[in-house]
Amino acid sequence: MKYLILLHSHPEPWGHPVEEFTPEFAALSAEERERHFAAFEALLGRLHEKGELVSGEPLGDPAKASLYEYESGAAKKSAGPYSATKDHLAGFFLIEAKDQARADEIAAEFAAPGQTVELRPIWTGAV
């Protein structure tokens, strides 16, 4: 089953890797930051080797987003970002996991200071 791991963060300024631009990550020691990035690279390697990592992409600055709403029979464009909160969607990873428990294990490994990780199953049409 496929799942989408959504990374929400609030870097200032916007940049990638988003952790480097959050106060929570900046508060870590240099050794802790180095360990985090090494562990993340190892995680991506393991997921790739097991065939569980399908794809992933960082997203651009939400201030450059455009919103399209359907209004009065037509699409209306307005400037982003969509969310009024400080957190925005920073990137995503599409994974393939044998079950929900494995998807939960993988998503938990994506957690990082200054980020919230959301795990959502890909819709299959089954209820």
Rank of each mutant, 00 (worst) to 15 (best):
E20K: 14
K86M: 06
A111L: 11
W14R: 12
L7D: 04
A97F: 06
H8R: 09
E69H: 13
L119H: 03
A90K: 03
G45E: 05
A79K: 13
R120V: 00
F92W: 13
A108K: 13
Q100S: 12
R35S: 09
E69R: 15
T85A: 12
S29I: 04
A39R: 13
P23E: 13
K76I: 14
T85D: 08
A39W: 04
F110D: 05
A74N: 14
L89G: 04
F40E: 12
H8C: 06
A101D: 15
A42F: 00
G15V: 07
M1H: 11
P121K: 09
H48L: 09
P113L: 05
W123T: 12
P113W: 04
A39D: 15
Y82A: 10
R46M: 01
L67E: 10
P17T: 08
K86L: 07
E32V: 01
T116D: 12
K77V: 15
A108Q: 11
V127H: 15
E52I: 03
P81E: 09
F110P: 07
S29T: 14
D104P: 00
A42E: 14
Q115N: 11
I95C: 08
S72T: 11
R33W: 00
E12C: 00
F21G: 09
E34L: 08
P17D: 07
E32G: 01
Y68D: 07
L94E: 10
V54S: 02
P11T: 01
L6P: 04
A108W: 07
A103S: 04
H16Y: 08
P81C: 06
V18Q: 09
G114R: 03
L94V: 13
A112E: 04
A30Q: 09
F40N: 10
A74H: 14
E49C: 06
Q100R: 15
L94F: 07
H10D: 10
Y70D: 08
L43D: 02
G51T: 11
A126L: 14
H48M: 06
F25Y: 13
I106E: 07
G60Y: 00
A97K: 09
G60F: 00
A39G: 12
Y68L: 15
E109H: 06
E20V: 10
K77A: 14
L4I: 15
Y70Q: 08
D61Y: 01
V54K: 06
A39S: 14
A42T: 11
F25E: 05
H88A: 10
P81A: 04
D87A: 09
E69K: 13
K50Q: 15
G60Q: 11
H10P: 02
E57F: 08
K64I: 00
A74Y: 11
S9C: 08
P62G: 03
S66P: 03
A26F: 01
I106N: 05
R33I: 00
A65W: 03
L44K: 07
S72M: 09
K64F: 02
S78G: 11
P62E: 06
H16N: 13
R102G: 05
E31L: 02
R35D: 12
F110W: 01
E31M: 00
L44V: 06
L28G: 04
L4Q: 10
A90V: 06
P121F: 02
A27V: 11
L89E: 07
H36F: 14
T85N: 10
